[in-house]
Simulated scan of single mutants.
Amino acid sequence: MKARFAAALAALMFSAISIVPAAAQTTRETDENGRPVATEGSSRSGAGRSRRDRQPAAPSPEQILAAAQEQATLGNTNCQVTEAKLLGTTAEKTSVYEMACAAGPGYIIESKTPPVVTDCVILADSATKLRAANPEAEVGPQCTIAANTDTEKFLREYAQQAGVPCTVDEVKVLGRATDGGIAYEVGCSDAAGFWIKNLNNAWSKTPCIQVLAENGTCAFTTTAENAGYVKTLFAGSEAASCDVTEARLMGRNANGVFYEAKCAGADGVIARLNAENAVQQVYPCATAQAIGGGCKLTTAPAAAAAPAGGRP
């Protein structure tokens, strides 16, 4: 089984965008009373130049909302913008917007071609990791619109959208997979967890027992929870009598997927399941040495000692 999950993840760390705040883009010289003053060399021609060089008026909230919606659409975000802020401009004269969406997390978008889009959940996670490594780290602009700040709520919504069938108690960002999808780990309060991935707005989920088999890790799932997951797969089958205390996913072939289970007070088993996760065949560990290298969780019985005086 290929280690496609653990090896595929890259940390989601974003370089900080250097922006000039929108409120700081126009300046005027004033006297001590705050009144405009003429600068050296002022004249009617100088005044003309001043009028020509004057910064355009700041965009209205309606214009900012429309511009943010345009960038969200160009960025293929599926975001219906409900609130937006112009954060400022960059040295490349691009504009940077924060926007909240009618559904899901908001974004910070830089108006490049194509737009550079980062959702608020990823930005918050990146900032947390950077500051953990260096409390003085420059983390760049962060989402501050009230609707964007509850990133834990969005993470739990991701688990629901991915079809995770449990009561979710923990979710964290893992990183970017080689196919471009973003992966997250989900922990459950009453069952084994999952890795979930969003690729092109489509969700997939992978049980933690499979993640472990593919050399990944699940920080939110215990050995007992993985055992419980396999016990539910065994329900109603020949393997149902096994009180599973530990389990592992061994691999799969054209005949199905193979799990080993350690059973409390009994010999362990290897079970073959079909694509619908129905048990098709059960092999006792005592006779399963030829199945994927045999059982690893159940200790094989020691060979009987030879009788005194050698073989009969």
Rank of each mutant, 00 (worst) to 15 (best):
residue 256 G to V: 04
residue 167 T to R: 15
residue 298 T to A: 04
residue 11 A to V: 05
residue 8 A to R: 08
residue 85 K to F: 10
residue 164 V to Y: 01
residue 94 T to C: 02
residue 68 A to W: 08
residue 82 T to A: 03
residue 236 G to E: 01
residue 223 T to C: 04
residue 233 L to S: 00
residue 160 Q to E: 14
residue 241 S to M: 09
residue 103 A to P: 00
residue 65 L to Q: 13
residue 36 P to T: 02
residue 46 G to Q: 09
residue 82 T to Y: 13
residue 64 I to A: 00
residue 135 P to R: 13
residue 194 F to T: 03
residue 280 Q to Y: 12
residue 49 R to W: 12
residue 250 M to I: 11
residue 89 T to P: 01
residue 221 T to G: 03
residue 309 G to Q: 03
residue 31 D to R: 13
residue 159 A to S: 05
residue 292 G to F: 10
residue 217 T to M: 14
residue 236 G to F: 00
residue 12 L to P: 00
residue 8 A to L: 02
residue 247 A to E: 02
residue 69 Q to C: 03
residue 64 I to M: 02
residue 195 W to N: 01
residue 283 Y to F: 15
residue 138 E to W: 09
residue 231 K to C: 03
residue 26 T to I: 06
residue 149 T to E: 13
residue 64 I to E: 02
residue 197 K to S: 00
residue 298 T to N: 01
residue 54 R to T: 07
residue 74 L to Q: 07
residue 289 Q to C: 06
residue 118 T to F: 09
residue 171 V to Q: 06
residue 79 C to P: 10
residue 291 I to C: 11
residue 7 A to R: 09
residue 300 A to N: 12
residue 67 A to M: 12
residue 59 P to K: 04
residue 119 D to W: 08
residue 260 E to T: 06
residue 199 L to M: 06
residue 81 V to M: 12
residue 31 D to Y: 11
residue 8 A to S: 15
residue 112 K to P: 02
residue 180 G to N: 04
residue 288 A to S: 04
residue 306 A to L: 12
residue 27 T to P: 04
residue 104 G to N: 06
residue 126 S to R: 07
residue 169 D to F: 08
residue 309 G to P: 06
residue 26 T to D: 10
residue 89 T to Y: 01
residue 5 F to W: 15
residue 1 M to C: 07
residue 295 C to P: 14
residue 40 E to G: 07
residue 309 G to V: 03
residue 47 A to F: 14
residue 130 L to F: 06
residue 17 I to H: 14
residue 223 T to N: 11
residue 166 C to W: 08
residue 255 N to M: 11
residue 304 A to Q: 13
residue 307 P to Q: 10
residue 69 Q to F: 09
residue 219 A to R: 14
residue 138 E to L: 09
residue 17 I to T: 10
residue 71 Q to R: 14
residue 163 G to F: 04
residue 51 R to M: 14
residue 97 Y to C: 00
residue 105 P to F: 05
residue 179 D to P: 05
residue 204 S to T: 15
residue 93 K to W: 06
residue 142 Q to M: 06
residue 140 G to E: 02
residue 14 F to I: 01
residue 248 R to L: 12
residue 262 K to S: 08
residue 130 L to R: 15
residue 184 Y to T: 07
residue 141 P to K: 10
